[in-house]
């Protein structure tokens, strides 16, 4: 029963990792960009939520009403002002510029909020749980997982069933020809980044409710998201959810053996899958 419980908690935490990963997967799919500052943006969203809550007194999840549009607007601006200038086939510029952004965000947050760790208080939501057949399911982890499923389903629908998704796919296939259909790639990419940071906002708020956060925890979140993407298979959003779940379960099992093994066990699971199935478990896209 203990083992089953550990696995279940791991599955639910996997939802959070899938939220870290979904945006990463989306922008890689649309513009082949790997944003090293992705994790730092998740942490930024947590701090923005903290400030919004201070100003409005809203509970954390309700604060998303402000945090999501704010982050989306930031994503649109960031893409137009900075990241679009780095895209042109060469690998280095986007990588190095986003690496620079990561350092700027970490130190900017440090300057603004000090290195103290913070947490968002979601009240009773954090402790409430239901008991199902001897297993205790926390309300917060369950909500996190359900949100991840909903977000991925929504992204999937957007990508394959809407005009915006069509524009994303066309620009990803052949940006030059997509221009001739009236799709300005600079704008298409900016919309993709806006959407990505909208998801990042949700991930950031859940992160901040679930655990303490500080200005330097971004790279760790980037790595979890990245591992979920690779485990699941590039370009497959449902695969990303599976990747997050596998990572969560591996970490849970590792922690059950020895608390020091939690993160390491996740990395080892990732490396094992990389060794056995380098294209991930459910690959879809080439590239």
């Amino acid at each position: 029963m203990d083992l089953l419980n550990t696995v279940l908690q791991g599955v639910l935490v996997g939802g959070l990792y899938a939220l870290f990963a979904a945006g990463l997967s989306l922008i890689f799919g649309v513009m082949r960009l790997v944003n090293i500052a992705h994790g730092d943006l998740i942490v930024l969203a947590a701090y923005i939520a903290m400030e919004v809550i201070k100003l409005t007194g809203l509970p954390p999840l309700a604060a998303l009403v402000f945090v999501v549009p704010l982050m989306a607007a930031l994503g649109y601006g960031l893409q137009r002002a900075v990241l679009n200038r780095t895209l042109g086939g060469d690998l280095l510029p986007p990588l190095l510029v986003s690496f620079g952004l990561s350092v700027i965000l970490q130190n900017g947050l440090l300057a603004a909020f000090t290195a103290d760790s913070r947490k968002l208080d979601a009240g009773v939501l954090e402790t409430a749980s239901v008991s199902v057949g001897g297993l205790s399911i926390g309300l917060l982890p369950a909500l996190m997982f359900a949100t991840a499923v909903a977000v991925i389903a929504a992204l999937q629908f957007m990508f394959y069933k809407t005009a915006l998704g069509r524009a994303f796919r066309a620009t990803s296939d052949d940006a030059e020809i997509a221009e001739l259909m009236g799709l300005d790639r600079r704008r298409v990419y900016a919309w993709a980044m806006a959407l990505c940071l909208g998801v990042v906002a949700i991930a950031g708020v859940f992160l901040a409710i679930r655990s303490n956060f500080d200005p330097f925890m971004g790279p760790g979140r980037l790595i979890f998201g990245f591992e979920a993407v690779i485990i699941g298979g590039l370009g497959n959003l449902w695969g990303t959810l599976a990747g997050g779940v596998i990572l969560g379960v591996a970490q849970g099992l590792g922690a059950a053996i020895d608390p020091g093994w939690q993160i390491l066990a996740g990395h080892v699971a990732f490396l094992l899958i990389l060794a056995v199935k380098p294209r991930g478990l459910f690959p879809r896209m080439d590239g």
Binding site: D90, P93, V97, Q106
Partner: peptide, 19 residues
Amino acid sequence: TLYLLFLGSLAIVVMLAAP
């Protein structure tokens, strides 16, 4: 921290203006 902010910004500016 301001020094690191400056260093990160300088790297971005150089990458964009003089790759």
